[in-house]
Simulated assay, not measured.
Amino acid sequence: MLRIKTAPIIALLAGLTLLTPPVSALTDMDDKPASLETLVGKGKWTVVEVWASDCRACRGSIHETINFEAANPDVDVVGISLDGSGGKANAEKFIDEFGLDFTNLLSDPSEFDKYLYSTAKESFIGTPTFMVYNPAGKLLAVQAGAITEEALSAFIKKQEAQGKPAT
Score class of each variant (00 low, 15 high):
1 M>E: 10
3 R>E: 03
3 R>D: 09
7 A>G: 14
7 A>I: 02
10 I>E: 14
11 A>L: 13
14 A>Y: 14
15 G>V: 04
22 P>I: 11
23 V>H: 01
24 S>W: 02
25 A>F: 01
29 M>W: 03
30 D>I: 11
31 D>V: 14
32 K>Q: 14
32 K>T: 12
32 K>H: 09
33 P>F: 00
34 A>V: 00
35 S>Q: 09
37 E>F: 15
38 T>L: 10
39 L>M: 15
39 L>A: 14
44 K>L: 09
46 T>F: 04
49 E>D: 11
49 E>L: 07
50 V>H: 04
51 W>V: 05
51 W>G: 03
52 A>H: 11
53 S>H: 08
55 C>W: 05
57 A>D: 00
58 C>M: 06
59 R>L: 08
59 R>C: 10
59 R>T: 13
61 S>R: 07
62 I>W: 07
63 H>V: 13
65 T>F: 09
65 T>R: 02
66 I>E: 03
66 I>D: 01
70 A>G: 04
71 A>T: 08
71 A>I: 00
72 N>K: 07
74 D>F: 08
79 G>Q: 04
82 L>H: 09
83 D>S: 00
83 D>M: 02
85 S>Y: 01
87 G>Q: 03
87 G>C: 06
87 G>D: 07
89 A>Q: 06
89 A>F: 05
90 N>C: 01
90 N>V: 02
91 A>W: 08
92 E>H: 12
93 K>Q: 01
93 K>F: 00
93 K>C: 01
95 I>T: 09
97 E>S: 10
99 G>I: 04
101 D>W: 04
102 F>R: 01
105 L>M: 01
105 L>G: 06
108 D>L: 06
111 E>C: 15
111 E>H: 15
112 F>W: 10
113 D>F: 09
115 Y>C: 00
116 L>I: 12
124 F>L: 05
131 M>F: 08
131 M>K: 12
133 Y>T: 12
133 Y>H: 14
134 N>F: 02
135 P>D: 08
135 P>K: 13
137 G>S: 03
139 L>H: 10
140 L>P: 11
142 V>D: 05
144 A>M: 03
146 A>K: 02
146 A>V: 03
148 T>G: 12
149 E>K: 08
151 A>N: 13
153 S>D: 06
154 A>I: 13
160 E>T: 15
167 T>W: 09
